[in-house]
Amino acid sequence: MAQVLHHMIPAAPTPVAPFSHAVESDGWIYTSGQIPQDPSDPDGPMPGDIVEQTHRCMRNLVTVLEGLELTLADVVSTRVYLTHFYDDYDAMNATYESYFPVGERPARTCIGVTGLARRARVEIDMVARKG
């Protein structure tokens, strides 16, 4: 059976609930969902618009990946959760796609939800693979 490692990344945002930033098993990395929380101001307000919220989520995830010596190129799948699906979908997509080269984007699911922690409009999680 593969060893399971639980990772907390010092530079990543303080968790808003009881979870690890990432869990690793057999070379697979499962990140916890990241909301647009500023790591330097954990109790500060969420950015106002979906573009900045999406950027913040992605920057938080990059921080988690870098803490494990990975990059976005190692990501195989993502899930995006939106509380204002129809209002935010296009702008979120335009922002999200800027993080991945055309032809090298991970598989993705995008889901409309009724609420997220700290009233965030977006949350994103990832699955990555080492080496």
Rank of each mutant, 00 (worst) to 15 (best):
M1Q: 13
Q3Y: 10
Q3A: 13
Q3M: 12
L5W: 06
L5A: 09
L5Y: 08
L5V: 04
H7M: 13
H7I: 13
M8F: 13
A12P: 01
A12L: 01
A12V: 04
P13R: 05
T14W: 08
V16K: 12
A17H: 09
A17W: 07
A17K: 10
P18Y: 09
F19S: 12
F19Y: 15
S20W: 07
A22F: 02
A22T: 03
V23G: 10
V23N: 12
D26W: 01
G27F: 03
T31I: 05
T31S: 07
G33T: 11
I35T: 01
P36L: 07
P39V: 01
P39D: 02
D41V: 08
P42Y: 04
D43K: 10
G44E: 11
P45Q: 15
M46D: 11
P47N: 11
G48C: 10
D49G: 15
D49A: 15
V51Q: 07
E52T: 13
E52I: 14
Q53G: 09
H55V: 10
H55N: 14
R56F: 14
R56Y: 11
R56Q: 15
M58R: 00
N60R: 04
N60S: 03
N60K: 00
L61Y: 04
L61Q: 03
V62D: 08
V62P: 03
E66M: 12
L68A: 08
E69Y: 09
E69D: 15
L70S: 06
L70W: 00
T71W: 04
L72S: 01
L72H: 04
L72V: 05
A73G: 12
A73R: 09
V76D: 07
S77N: 09
S77T: 06
T78G: 06
T78C: 11
V80I: 11
V80P: 00
Y81W: 09
L82N: 06
T83D: 03
T83Y: 04
H84E: 12
F85G: 09
Y86M: 13
D87N: 08
D88S: 05
D88C: 02
D88V: 03
Y89W: 11
D90E: 13
D90I: 15
D90L: 13
N93Y: 10
A94G: 07
A94R: 09
T95W: 01
S98A: 10
F100M: 00
P101E: 00
P101L: 03
V102K: 14
G103Y: 04
E104V: 01
R105C: 08
R108Y: 10
R108P: 06
R108G: 08
T109C: 06
I111G: 06
G112E: 01
L116M: 05
R118C: 08
A120K: 02
R121A: 06
R121T: 00
R121Y: 02
V122A: 03
I124N: 01
D125W: 04
D125G: 08
M126P: 04
V127I: 14
V127M: 13
K130S: 06
K130V: 07
